[in-house]
Design a binder for these strands. Structure first.
Length: 269
DNA sequence: GGCCAGGCGCGGA
DNA sequence: TCCGCGCATGGC
């Protein structure tokens, strides 16, 4: 496998394969809510921060912890192989003609942040989700740091209501209590079926949010979150292909391609 | 101004 | 087990 990236020092990673790393597409594919893009992009994960600069020949990630972001950006995985595999589906092959799509990667988010963020995401829109999460961070003291369980545990239903969580507020209070009794490393060892079963016990986590947590928090690449956008898209490709995709080992990756293509690029399958 | 959003929990069949 | 309903809020 071609080396796609290299750790330069404890604060710096260089990424060389543009075809496998498009920071704008990654951040705009709906898997992360705390980021901003101007000349450079900045992304936050837990208490960590990374800035990504794109030059002609390479991308440079400047961050507080290079090892952390190596894992976060999934830089051990060769996405060319995944793309090749998924290209057996005609409609995925067509999507990948848009080169930005091929630069999407599945991030490895912080467990608590992913769970809380995607409970908030239910029946909500992305702009509003981002604002609520920003207010949540501010409520616990630092706009650049996602609250830990200690701070989250102190928040009341009213606190969540007041920052716009709406009817999800009681779910969040319950979920935070449950999260205190869950151990990430133990969950990470479970099979897909067992993990799903455990995550579904969390208040506010149903089938779709569960799939998001599995995909973006546990890197289970076959987990496919089916929101209204994906369901609409899959109706267009026919039952046979849709069924095959839903059971594919990289279904979650395909789902990210479709989500970005249909929603962000506003293109039809 | 009305429809919609990365849905979910709940009660009733 | 499987519907259908209600739900907070603001983006568009």
């Amino acid at each position: 496998m071609k080396q796609i990236a290299k750790i330069i020092d404890k604060n710096t990673i260089e990424v060389y394969e543009k075809s496998q790393f498009n920071i704008n597409a990654i951040l705009q594919s709906g898997q992360v809510f705390r980021y901003s893009c101007g000349d450079n992009c900045v992304v936050f994960a837990g208490k960590n921060r990374a800035e990504i600069r794109q030059d002609a020949e390479k991308m440079t990630i400047t961050c507080n912890d290079a090892d952390y972001f190596w894992r976060y950006f999934d830089l051990d995985t060769d996405y060319e192989k995944i793309k090749e595999n998924l290209s057996h589906f005609g409609f995925i092959k067509k999507i990948l003609l848009d080169k930005s799509i091929g630069g999407i990667r599945i991030l490895k988010g912080e467990f608590v942040e992913i769970v809380v963020s995607f409970i908030i995401s239910a029946n909500n829109n992305i702009k509003r989700i981002q604002k609520i999460i920003d207010r949540l961070c501010k409520l616990c003291g630092d706009i650049a740091v996602f609250p830990d369980l200690e701070c989250l545990g102190k928040l009341s239903e009213k606190d969540f209501f007041d920052i716009g969580c709406g009817y999800r507020s009681p779910y969040l209070v319950s979920a935070v209590k449950q999260l205190k009794n869950l151990n990430y490393d133990a969950l990470d060892k479970l099979s897909n079926e067992q993990l799903k079963k455990e995550l579904l016990k969390i208040m506010g986590v149903g089938e779709k949010v569960c799939a998001c947590i599995m995909l973006f928090g546990f890197h289970r690449l076959n987990a496919i979150p089916q929101d209204v956008w994906i369901k609409r898209a899959l109706e267009q490709v026919g039952a046979k292909d849709a069924s095959a995709l839903l059971n594919h080992k990289y279904a979650g990756v395909a789902q990210q391609y479709i989500f970005y293509y249909t929603q962000h690029l506003k293109k039809k399958l």
